[in-house]
């Protein structure tokens, strides 16, 4: 019953730790560019969560919903892990004019993890003919809870501080998403194969943090050289 509390506390700790270590980010043109690519895997055989039985709005939501809290691909690769460099202070500019879409379609948040630059606009969309509510559990950003009936196609939202924000719909309890408010452009989310890429990274040695909603987080050092690709492989242990 207290899982949210734990998650909330965990995220809080994570952020405060991050806030302590990271410096204010400065955007500029990057002359020498390196790349980071990698794969995230789960250690051992974590049990896959069961699909969720839908008990309301079946016409829109279907009879069951896939559980997205842990999606494993071939070779235990982990989808939807968040990768970020924690101690980067200079690099390509953050696109604060961006418009990022978070859709609610067939009673699911799409994508399940969304990265939005701090100051940019997250357009929260409702594609369903029913009402959802967007309820954020944030500490560094103002937590909102806004109803979105079908009459309100888009709710534009902005974030002011870097934070991984648990977001849910209370009306449809299974609907959850993670909004990653990013204070620099070096954030990535792993794909179906557990792979990710960071491009245009200035050469240097960085702390890289890998976070997943159920598997937790870890940090790894990565050294980026000009015009080269650093390859990383990490295993998350629960």
């Amino acid at each position: 019953m207290r899982t949210w509390l734990v998650v909330l506390g965990g995220v809080g700790l994570l952020i405060s730790a991050a806030a302590g270590s990271s410096l204010a980010y400065e955007g500029a043109a990057v002359a020498e560019k390196g790349r980071v690519s990698g794969i995230v895997k789960a250690a051992g055989k974590p049990p896959a969560p069961k699909p969720i039985e839908v008990n309301k709005d079946q016409a829109t939501c279907g009879k069951s919903q896939p559980a997205e809290s842990l999606i494993l691909g071939a070779g235990n690769s982990v989808k939807n892990a968040v990768i970020r460099l924690t101690n980067i202070s200079k690099g390509k500019p953050l696109d604060t004019a961006a418009k990022v879409m978070l859709d609610q379609a067939k009673c699911r948040f799409v994508p399940h993890v969304v990265i939005v630059p701090v100051g940019a606009t997250l357009e929260i969309k409702n594609s369903d003919p029913i009402t959802h509510n967007v309820h954020t559990f944030s500490i560094e950003n103002d937590p909102i809870n806004k109803a979105q009936p079908k009459t309100v196609p888009i709710i534009p939202t902005k974030f002011t501080a870097p934070e991984i924000v648990k977001t849910q719909c209370d009306i449809h309890k299974w609907m959850g998403t993670w909004i990653v408010a990013a204070d620099h452009p070096y954030y990535a989310v792993t794909d179906d194969k557990g792979q990710f890429k960071l491009a245009d990274v200035p050469p240097g040695t960085y702390q890289m943090e890998i976070w997943h909603e159920t598997l937790g987080k870890m940090t790894k050092e990565v050294t980026v050289k000009a015009n080269a690709e650093a390859s990383v492989s990490v295993e998350l242990k629960k």
Binding site: V134, K146, A147, V152, D170
Partner: peptide
Amino acid sequence: PMPSFADS
């Protein structure tokens, strides 16, 4: 869970 209906 009671949301704001300011948008609608």
